[in-house]
Design a protein around this nucleic acid. Sequence first.
DNA 1: AACGCCGAGTGGTCCGACCACTGTGCAGCA
DNA 2: TGCTGCACAGTGGTCGGACCACTCGGCGTT
Lengths: 248, 248
Amino acid sequence: MIEGVRTPVAQRTVEQIKAMISTGEVGPQQRLPTERDLSARFGVSRGSVREAIRILTTLGVLEVRHGAGVYVTALRPDDLLEAFGVLSEVSPDPTLLEVLQVRRMIEPAATAIAAARATEEDLNRIGEMLDRLEDIDRSAEPGDSGAFDLGFHRRIVACAGNATLTAVHAGLSSPTLNERVWAGHDAEGIARDLHEDHRRILEALRDRDPEAARATATAHVLRVERWLRSHLRSVGPSLDANPSAEGP
Amino acid sequence: MIEGVRTPVAQRTVEQIKAMISTGEVGPQQRLPTERDLSARFGVSRGSVREAIRILTTLGVLEVRHGAGVYVTALRPDDLLEAFGVLSEVSPDPTLLEVLQVRRMIEPAATAIAAARATEEDLNRIGEMLDRLEDIDRSAEPGDSGAFDLGFHRRIVACAGNATLTAVHAGLSSPTLNERVWAGHDAEGIARDLHEDHRRILEALRDRDPEAARATATAHVLRVERWLRSHLRSVGPSLDANPSAEGP
DNA sequence: AACGCCGAGTGGTCCGACCACTGTGCAGCA
DNA sequence: TGCTGCACAGTGGTCGGACCACTCGGCGTT
């Protein structure tokens, strides 16, 4: 008997709930039966149902509203790739280099597409973000500098019109990663270079020039990558802390 | 109390466990205190601790061994991106096109790098896999055809030597996705084209020609992408995004 | 008609008990 | 002496019930 595999109850429950979604018994945005009902229906304890729900919530498939019920998400890529962020939170430093290398593959391509697809309004908003970013940095107060840098790149990628791409890119460029890359290394003159990169990227977008967009984006990521590589050895391996309070 | 935000206990526990890892109290591969100990230490119930552990397990940070204890994983990218696969399991069909578009960005780049880095042994194993794939398809038995197709591409990407890239690519090319793309559409003559693509890619790798590798890989993914696009309409819209983003 | 209160129902948390599995050390055997 | 095998203690896995915190809709007041 090869048989004899004991599937954990919680795991089995996960499959059953996924099945409910696959078969269409509950569709996206729709409400699931109550924990107590599911418990009775599957013949398992409520605690096990809760663990299953926790798993699917972490995976971005379900969404729990206290006092209101459990709902299936829209199942859009940004829902399902939400958990992606841990990568840049707990990974050892050398992995950050790998992450940047992956960004060097997708961000230029995305920027090139954005050059062809971005609307005037998109470009204006990207420009505004860049203005604010430079204002902040000029005022020598590195407050949310990273947040706007992030916003700049994300908005560009979003212009490519591919939600999956946007979500993957978001996972590879979390605030935590940015923080870890620049931790304790403000200025050093590289900020000016980065701003220049940003301006060139924006120009390429305004020119509707995909090739220029690709090239400038590549150069930008490459600059960060090289900077990080040269500064990694001096700090040694570490796992960053992360008291990240969720916003929206 | 200025405090007004009520953080769920389980969520807080997740942060506390992550902190234990961040501070180095427990390192990769090491064992965590028992659920009961953590329960006492954090002043929360064992059930809540379990939910927190479930979350971190889903994220690939922890690993549970029944009867032996809870361990921190190696925190390698393939651990942390394991959950990635759900994307291609529950996503609506249109998302599959987006996924392929992302693959079109990273797979050619990865193949180009592989052309420069693959060892002789790598190339031989890739070649063998291709032989088996063609054997299977020629025998008109589409059994594990998909598995070998997957293996072929994954092995190439692995040659790029970037674990993060490998993990991301794996998430974007799961068996489930392959299955969904080709479901019920064996042959149709496209199989021959795909094999030809594969051979060309392998030739480029053997020639150590990154540009050729990039071009052939792009052509290959593009072929799949176009095929899928032309076959998606025939099945009609499945779970497409809906305009009902209203709150109750 | 508009506002505000309240209660039923939902998820959130806790407790204590028992089951299933693992690893280890001791006892028994060869 | 050396190995085998079993029992035990400790761990995660599951269960049931109880109570708390929150949401929401309906009912009453104004």
